[in-house]
């Protein structure tokens, strides 16, 4: 007996919600970045679960694509964080308010 599709989807929904709440709660840019990675992983889980239950390889292929995009996002995002830190000596998103006035 294997767990039903619903339990995989429920786990994915819970992880996605935790990630989304984390993006709202975190104040530093790196914490927000990590929560975004968590949300991407939750979506990957739904891809793999549907791939298993439909017997179709496309879902797993797109997980691979999502991982590549996440790696690209990591490179650019951390570059932005370092550039921001160099200007402001902080990674707090509240300090990124130069466009406000």
């Amino acid at each position: 007996m294997e767990p039903s599709l619903g339990s995989y989807l429920a786990l994915s929904g819970i992880l996605f919600t935790i990630g989304a709440v984390g993006v709202i709660y975190k104040r530093n840019a790196i914490g927000m970045f990590m929560c975004i990675e968590l949300m991407l992983n939750a979506v990957n889980l739904t891809f793999v679960a549907f791939s298993r239950y439909y017997g179709d390889v496309t879902g797993q292929l797109f997980v691979f694509m999502v991982m590549s995009v996440a790696a690209a996002e990591a490179a650019v995002g951390l570059g932005i964080i370092i550039a921001f830190f160099r200007n402001r000596v902080s990674v707090d998103v509240d300090d990124a308010s130069i466009l406000k006035n």
């Binding site: 790696a71 690209a72 996002e73 490179a75 650019v76 951390l78 570059g79 932005i80 370092i82 550039a83």
Partner: peptide, 9 residues
């Protein structure tokens, strides 16, 4: 992404 990362950092 490689080029962007190098330019940003």
């Amino acid at each position: 992404a490689i080029i962007g990362g190098v330019i940003l950092a």
